[in-house]
Design a binder for these strands. Structure first.
Lengths: 231, 231
DNA sequence: CTAGAATCGGATAGGCCTTTCCGATTCGCT
DNA sequence: AGCGAATCGGAAAGGCCTATCCGATTCTAG
């Protein structure tokens, strides 16, 4: 047994290698705390609040993740993997249009489930190579989905891959604004957008997802004014 | 001349009445500074930054507007008037569908021109009566626009007034995310959404507004990660 | 079991924010 | 011109945040 093999990496995360086991333990606590905080408050949540949630000292947090970007990249590494995998799954669908719409709904659903991730998808972190590699992978898959859906005659020819980015930004806005008070509003938005992407076909109109109730939206609009900073 | 008539309100704002002229002057400086700051940074901008921009002491700002909400309400009073007026203008359009789409584009354009206003439209301020009165007025006008557009057979029957709120939230998201780097992205979003609101008619398809260029969107996604707070 | 290295986390410095207090200044009437 | 009231704005108190320092603690190898 070589000295280097003594510290076996029990954690699946390769960047935890070589750490003392208490350090690795803290690292994991920080990551799961950050996951919770970012999902709730978005990635502009303070480093201090993450440390509090994790129950570690502030210095410990900064030692493991010197910059906020490092923490964000570590937290969303596997979510970005899921994101990239979704494109592959969609490409395996024999129906190009169904694969295209499934992908969009899946991605927007991931945004709805995690406010932090919703924000990550509308930003780019040039220094976080791992994240950007996954993003590029997903992008290539989506480009292929677009080509196939156009070839099948279901996707309008003037659709561009930039439209997905716009949708992600729009969806992030709805999710941030409704934040739990109208949890289905984003489905309505996505349903409308997909509708507009399709080549018009009166013989094949899908119903839209239901609109949120007026009271739900009103609650969202009030809640929105009850906050201070974040973002 | 009665004592009460001595101080003539030169300012159009009735709530400036009874102030000494230097006080009124400061009030105006604060309001125009806040307009600039809110348009640029959104209504979560700090009171301190508004005071700095206005060149007045912090205490002066707080004396005139004890709570952030008071300042927001004062700043956006006339913009909300324009907002309400737009509904009336749209109702005067003889073509119900054209009036409907014109209104949506006008309102979303107002959002694009003022990030603070974009946020105000997705919130409600129960204590700011004047603001909410105007909002209700616009809402009633929009409801009528919806009815007429449906009667004309151009607007899909399952459209609801809540869809406008969702669009406003989505548009606010795109505007906040692109913030100058891709100034036309919101038009693409709005074009798509209007497309989806229309009763499908292959004989009458309008082209979508152009999509932003990939580089413009990329710049927006980088810029987004370059900020600290906001929101 | 122990020594030394790795790690922890409280404390601290510095920044920005909100809100209030109060002495200094300016205005407006006489 | 001059007085009193209105208004100004710097200062201060308190909160939260980032980032770093360093003595205390915990782990690991031998």
């Amino acid at each position: 047994m070589t000295p280097a093999a003594r510290r076996v990496p029990a954690s699946p995360d390769p960047s935890a290698q070589g750490l003392r086991i208490d350090a690795r333990h803290n690292r994991d606590r920080i990551l799961s705390a950050a996951r919770r905080v970012y999902a709730r408050d978005g990635i502009e949540a303070s480093m201090a609040s993450v440390a509090r949630e994790a129950g570690v000292g502030i210095a410990t947090l900064f030692r493991h993740f010197p910059a906020r970007e490092d923490l964000v990249a570590a937290v969303f590494a596997d979510t970005m993997q899921t994101y990239a995998d979704a494109a592959a799954t969609a490409l395996a669908d024999p129906d190009p249009w169904h694969g295209f719409t499934w992908y969009i709904e899946a991605v927007c659903g991931m945004q709805a489930a995690d406010r932090g991730f919703a924000e990550v998808l509308t930003m780019t972190f040039p220094s976080a190579r791992a994240l950007e590699t996954k993003r590029d992978e997903a992008y290539r898959g989506f480009s292929e989905l677009v080509v196939r859906a156009k070839e099948a005659g279901r996707l309008r020819p003037d659709f561009t891959t930039e439209d997905l980015v716009i949708l992600l930004m729009a969806n992030a806005g709805v999710i941030a604004a409704t934040a739990g008070a109208a949890p289905e509003a984003w489905r309505r938005l996505v349903g409308c957008m997909i509708q507009s992407y399709a080549v018009p076909d009166p013989a094949n109109t899908e119903p839209l997802p239901p609109a949120p109730t007026p009271t739900a939206l009103y609650r969202a609009m009030i809640r929105l004014s009850r906050r201070s900073s974040t973002s």
